[in-house]
C-alpha cells in the first residue's frame, strides 16, 4: 500500500514537474513581458506543488531520499507524467493549447482530490485548487483570444488543438497504483472526470470559434513510463547537475 501511495503521488506530481519545466524554458522569450511574467507564475505554482508532493513522498519512502532525488535522479522509464505535458513549446499556440487541455483536467482532478482520505493530499489539493483555477482562467482566455483573434492566430490555435488532441484521453487512464488508491478512498477515479472534461473543452472551443477535432486514435503510455522522444532531452537538462556533481548539496 505504501508503494502504491508513493507511486500514486509521483504520478500526480510528475505532470506538474514536466509542465513546470516546459514553462521554465520560456522565461525571457514570451510574446510580451506581461505574458512572460504570467507563464513564469504558472511555472512557479507548479514547482511549488511538486515540492509539496515530493516532500510528502520522501517522507513515505522513509529512507534518506529527498525531494531532489525523486525529482532528478529517476531513470526515463520511471517518470509517470502524461504525454501531453512533455510536448514541446512549438509556438505560443501550442504552449497555450497544452496548458488549457491540461488545466481543465487538473482543476477537476484537484477538486476531487480535496476529498481524499489521505489528509496530506487533501490539504495540498485545497491549496492548489486556487492556483489552478487561475491557470485555467488564463489559458481559457488565451484560447479564445487566439481562436477568435486574427485568421493567422485561428489557424495556429486550431493546429495546436488538433496536434495535442491525441494526448487528451490518457488523462483518464488508470494504472494499477491508481486503481488501488481509488479503492482506498485516497485517489481520484479519473474515469469519472472524462465526460465533463470533454464537454467543458468543447464549450470553450466553440466560444473560441474553433473546431472540435475528430477523435480517432489516442496516444497513451506516459503513465506507464513509455514516453515520447521529447522526455529524454528534457530530463538531460533537468538531471544534468545532479548527475554531473553527484551527492553534493546546493
Amino acid at each position: 500500500m505504501k508503494n502504491n501511495l508513493y507511486n500514486y503521488i509521483l504520478g500526480i506530481a510528475d505532470n506538474s514537474l514536466i509542465l513546470g519545466q516546459r514553462l521554465g524554458q520560456l522565461c525571457g522569450h514570451g510574446p510580451s513581458l506581461e505574458t512572460d511574467i504570467a507563464c513564469t507564475n504558472i511555472s512557479l505554482d507548479l514547482f511549488g506543488q511538486v515540492r509539496s508532493y515530493f516532500q510528502y513522498a520522501a517522507k513515505i519512502a522513509g529512507d534518506q531520499r529527498t525531494e531532489d532525488d525523486i525529482a532528478m535522479l529517476r531513470k526515463e522509464r520511471d517518470y509517470k507524467n502524461v504525454l501531453l505535458v512533455e510536448q514541446p513549446n512549438t509556438n505560443f499556440a501550442f504552449t497555450i493549447g497544452r496548458q488549457f487541455l491540461f488545466d481543465v483536467y487538473h482543476l477537476a482532478f484537484l477538486t476531487e482530490l480535496q476529498n481524499s482520505n489521505d489528509f496530506t493530499l487533501s490539504v495540498i489539493a485545497k491549496k492548489c485548487v486556487k492556483e489552478v483555477s487561475y491557470h485555467l482562467r488564463f489559458s481559457s482566455d488565451w484560447v479564445k483570444r487566439l481562436g477568435n483573434g486574427t485568421p493567422v492566430s485561428k489557424e495556429k490555435m486550431q493546429e495546436a488543438i488538433n496536434g495535442l488532441w491525441t494526448y487528451t484521453d490518457e488523462l483518464f487512464y488508470q494504472t494499477n497504483a491508481d486503481k488501488e488508491m481509488v479503492f482506498e478512498g485516497i485517489g481520484v477515479d479519473v474515469t469519472k472526470l472524462k465526460n465533463n472534461y470533454y464537454s467543458h473543452i468543447n464549450n470553450i472551443l466553440l466560444e473560441a470559434t474553433l473546431e472540435i477535432p475528430e477523435s480517432k486514435w489516442f496516444q497513451t503510455g506516459g503513465k506507464e513510463g513509455i514516453h515520447s522522444e521529447h522526455l529524454g532531452y528534457l530530463l538531460s537538462d533537468l538531471q544534468y547537475m545532479q548527475r554531473t556533481y553527484p551527492n553534493m548539496e546546493w
Binding site: P31, S32, N91, R145, L146, G149, T150, V152, S153
Partner: peptide, 13 residues
C-alpha cells in the same frame, strides 16, 4: 517578432 501574431490576435479579439 515571433510574438507579433499573438499581440495582433489579442487586439483583434
Amino acid at each position: 517578432e515571433e510574438g507579433e501574431w499573438v499581440r495582433d490576435a489579442a487586439m483583434a479579439y
